[in-house]
Design a protein around this nucleic acid. Structure first.
Length: 105
DNA sequence: TGATTGACGTTAT
DNA sequence: AATAACGCCAATC
């Protein structure tokens, strides 16, 4: 319904392809989708996801390897928890080692 | 209809 | 090295 449903769909597919135990950046997802510089839009799509989604949105962090849900404390906490469950070391502030966990893609 | 904002990233200073 | 500015564009005001 909103514009660019194909872009949104592409984002969902790309996120779904990220293997468990690894993380990807917004820019990486945007690149995979075919729109290299729409990292911001990727974030918008993830923001609009329903709670019960099966999509591994928690594996998406910003380029600094840092959880970008700062205002949404509930989402951030959930994301950190999910990442830890996959064996990824995440700081209480939502920071992790990109060089160690980033998906090569 | 126009201006501002924002789960980002890169380039320039 | 740290900070500022720009690009991007849908959603919101």
């Amino acid at each position: 319904m909103t514009a660019l449903p194909d872009f949104r769909q592409g984002v969902l597919e790309a996120v779904a392809r990220v293997p468990a135990g690894t993380v990807a950046t917004y820019g990486q997802i945007a690149w995979m989708t075919g729109y290299p510089r729409r990292s911001r839009q990727v974030g918008m799509v993830l923001k609009g996801l329903p709670e019960g989604t099966e999509l591994p949105w928690h594996r998406i962090v910003n380029a600094k390897g840092y959880v970008s849900s700062r205002g949404r404390w509930w989402c951030a906490m959930l994301q950190i928890r999910l990442l830890r469950e996959e064996g990824i070391e995440v700081d209480d502030d939502g920071q992790l080692d990109l060089a160690r966990h980033q998906w090569p893609g």
